[in-house]
Design a protein around this nucleic acid. Structure first.
Lengths: 221, 221
DNA sequence: AAGGACTATATTGTCGACAATGATTTGGTT
DNA sequence: AACCAAATCATTGTCGACAATATAGTCCTT
């Protein structure tokens, strides 16, 4: 059972992941046209593979396709950010509620440990917390919901778009310590199995976070 | 400008829609294997087109695919229904909130008219209300949210799965008049621009509706 | 007879070529 | 010179063939 459950990775899978990363990280800029032939030479795969990758990216709203015309990377806009975060607020709020119901004590303890680790990191002035740390926290709560559809929707769909906004707008700012406090409160609510409060706090937390990014975006445009 | 904005329909689009319908309506039963070659002869298109259609169905969780093995129609289960309705509660709750904020007075009036029409239909004992009427109401509120991403997520993704459960479990039951009353209250909250209440009422409404289907499913299995 | 390895078969994954559609450029007309 | 039409070009959509992988069936070994 050494090689158990290694889900096979097809060429289309790799290309999809690579292409998604290149878009999210801004290597391929927002609004750019995605030429199938061009990409097929660039990534050294056939057009069919590129097409499948593009179709998958279309499904999670990272690119937009028009029949017989082609696909473009989505533009980042104030309106788009607003829409995205309304959905995120809704779904992650529900995730927090379900996490308060379904997470095991072991999982909750690991979540609390994670926050302690982050706290140390924040004290030492590292910026680690910003990117990966925040993601870790939210990721665990999403998984803790135990709702497979919700998990897929968020981790495969929404989150890459969220990351695209954060990366390309160069997230930084004074929200580190306040965000930490919010995380702590949410974790506490989950520990208390208070579904109602967990959802409310998560929704607020995401709203605050949206406002920060929105300001950033406004100042740049 | 006679033929303005007629978005071209490709063969893949048609096949996708047809295949989705056949699955939702139960022509292709839940759990069935989707052989690409078989479907390509059945629908008279090439395998590439079938593949694209299947991939799109995978994106909205109507079929599940495993690399190098194939695609199957999802199974309908108590757990799956639970998960689906948790998401629906979350997203449609948000849709109702946004609808209370963003719907125009004209749209709200049309919504109220729709309910009156439905009321007449219900009084006359027709069962029209069950399927199409309920859909109409929810559909208008979703559109009223004015959140394009949310609209796509619900109308292209979630709703076909919801319909699949409803159709294949043969929805009927005594919920007609109570559902009508709930719809009326939601519409009233939207008219009052009461976002908070609109969301709460919509979430309750969907929870009730879930319980009805869950009972049905339990009694059949 | 049971278990495992190997082979055969069927299905999916990938590819290059052709067809159809949309964009561009060129030429003509007013 | 400006505008419209037709032909050219590039790009996407579709197809059939080939390669790679998983399944199932067979044969051999213990």
């Amino acid at each position: 059972m050494a090689t158990a459950n290694v889900t096979p990775i097809t060429s289309a899978d790799r290309t999809f992941i690579q292409l998604r990363q290149d878009i999210v990280e801004g290597v391929i800029p927002a609004g750019a046209k995605l030429s199938e032939t061009e990409l097929s030479t660039k990534y050294q795969v056939s057009r069919a593979v590129i097409r499948e990758a593009i179709n998958r990216l279309t499904a999670c709203h990272i690119v937009e396709r028009r029949a017989n015309v082609g696909a473009r990377v989505v533009e980042l806009s104030q309106a788009g950010l607003q829409e995205l975060y309304e959905i995120r607020e809704s779904l992650e709020g529900m995730a927090a509620r379900l996490a308060a119901r379904n997470m095991t004590m072991a999982e909750i303890n690991k979540l609390l440990n994670l926050l302690d680790t982050h706290f140390e990191t924040v004290r030492e002035g590292e910026s680690y917390y910003q990117e990966a740390g925040d993601y870790d926290f939210h990721y665990r709560i999403i998984l803790g919901s135990k709702n497979q559809q919700l998990i897929t929707l968020l981790t495969e769909g929404i989150y890459h778009l969220v990351r695209m906004y954060r990366v390309q707008l160069g997230m930084a700012g004074p929200r580190v310590t306040t965000a930490y406090a919010e995380h702590k409160h949410i974790a506490q609510a989950i520990l208390n199995r208070d579904e109602e409060l967990a959802e409310i706090l998560m929704r607020r937390h995401i709203t605050y976070s949206k406002n920060t990014i929105a300001k950033k975006l406004a100042s740049q445009s």
